[in-house]
């Protein structure tokens, strides 16, 4: 094996580029999703989930605070579960999760698709899918 000089640069010369920012975004969005899910679960417990929902339903609400997720439980009134606060929280979780997930798919695709043409196609497809899934998700959250 031929010896090659290491291609990594010291931190001070690396600067910021899009891939580095997405690397950071992946970590920070993970923390943001933890915070949003915790917020939704605490909110559910305050709104009476402790006596009206089982653990699976609380988690379903936690992973996406959308009122359709509590329809089949013993909650007497859906109104407190479909306030603008929860729609905004759900929208934030949706946008962060779609961006995090789609970037993850691009990272996986880059391991197998190595031509620059192929990688460009993957990126264009990923942008289209981020927009499409965000739009569909927002439509569901704000019309349900």
């Amino acid at each position: 094996m031929a010896t090659t000089k290491p291609r990594s640069l010291p931190l001070s010369k690396r600067g910021l580029n899009f891939e580095m920012l997405m690397w950071l975004f992946t970590r920070l969005s993970a923390l943001a999703m933890y915070a949003l899910i915790l917020f939704a679960i605490i909110g559910a417990l305050i709104m009476g989930a402790r006596t009206q929902m089982n653990l699976a339903d609380v988690l379903r609400w936690g992973f996406m605070p959308n009122s359709t997720h509590v329809q089949s439980t013993d909650v007497p009134d859906l109104a407190p579960w479909s306030t603008p606060l929860w729609r905004v929280a759900g929208s934030l979780l949706l946008l962060v999760a779609v961006a995090h997930g789609m970037h993850g798919l691009v990272v996986i695709a880059d391991d197998y698709i190595v031509s620059s043409r192929g990688r460009n196609i993957v990126r264009i497809l990923s942008i289209i899918m981020v927009i499409a899934f965000s739009a569909m998700g927002l439509y569901i959250i704000w019309t349900s």
Binding site: A97, G101, M102, G104, L105, I108
Partner: peptide
């Protein structure tokens, strides 16, 4: 990650 992406 793949499983969740497909599920979501």
């Amino acid at each position: 990650g793949l499983g969740m992406a497909i599920f979501v």
